[in-house]
Design a protein around this nucleic acid. Sequence first.
DNA 1: TCGCGCATGTAAGTTGTTACATGATTTA
DNA 2: TAAATCATGTAACAACTTACATGCGCGA
Lengths: 183, 183
Amino acid sequence: MSLKYAVLAALHEQPATGYDLTRNFRTRMANVWNASHQQIYRELAKMTEEGLLEVEEVPQESRPDRKLYRLSDAGTASLATWLAEPQGRPPTRDPLLVKLFGGDLVDPASLREEIERHRRNWQEELGRYQDIEAEYFSKPEQVPFRFRLQHLALRKGILAMEANLAWADEVAGVLKDELTSRP
Amino acid sequence: MSLKYAVLAALHEQPATGYDLTRNFRTRMANVWNASHQQIYRELAKMTEEGLLEVEEVPQESRPDRKLYRLSDAGTASLATWLAEPQGRPPTRDPLLVKLFGGDLVDPASLREEIERHRRNWQEELGRYQDIEAEYFSKPEQVPFRFRLQHLALRKGILAMEANLAWADEVAGVLKDELTSRP
DNA sequence: TCGCGCATGTAAGTTGTTACATGATTTA
DNA sequence: TAAATCATGTAACAACTTACATGCGCGA
């Protein structure tokens, strides 16, 4: 229902190519919206056809020409309308938690390894967010409102990763009990 | 990629009807896996055809007969195989955070209302999880391992909601600044 | 009597994933 | 010289959402 609006919001910030958007969704907006390049290119074509975007072809040598997309007036209007609507919450679908319902089929030792792997990923992701925070949002009082909003989006990612890491500790505690009492 | 395994895990715990699964996914497993009843009925039919599930029809008066599903041997084997595989992380797609990238098109006052609405939802959800925790998992040391694993899944939901609420406070702070300095 | 809970589904449409496809340039 | 980055896509498939559909019993 809204890769469309994620794209509109990203392009409202500044015009970009499909490649740029793909990179942004993977890095700076990783805790906001995920989308593969295939999805993005398809969506950009569709939205352009619908008149929400304008394209400027920027010729290049020895590479495919860049297609720089920006919002049309209709695109801006569509984004503004959407922004005024109340939004629902994203659905939760976590394969790792499904595992915990596997009961007697779950092997505690391999579960422990998996949790540690996830812990490392969460730690890395937290690090990346903290780097962005330090680089772009270190003076929160002096920054324009739109940057403060972006900072808040990032903060949600940071708090979520911290919660994940705290949870990993709880899991480690339970698994340690289990693995020492019944080795 | 794995409503299938969420269903297998739920049915491994105990046999259930589509209706039961729908209810579980909405309540006890709300922080684990979301699925609508339409999706679940369709998936149950497909999985039965694939030989992963067995159905027992339980006749009822004045209601449609219940179809009680349980794992076949193939279903148990399929779940066990899946449990041994490392799992990826769920993608993040949060419309509320997309809003924060709307920049000058975002109205701070209506954003504040929306955050407060989300806060109330998160608070309610946290309350439900805490009720479940108090009712089923209040004596963590004496409980069998599979219940401790389920408790951990619930704990992740609790920590996530607490992080959401802490974030709502941060947002409220920023919006208060903005709304008082430029009213 | 109105809405909720029980209990099942079908159909159409949208969104997301996975696999395939190309090719030059820069960096290690 | 191998891998990553830049830069674009198509096609097939799987998963998810939304709308439609039925009907009884129970409690407020």
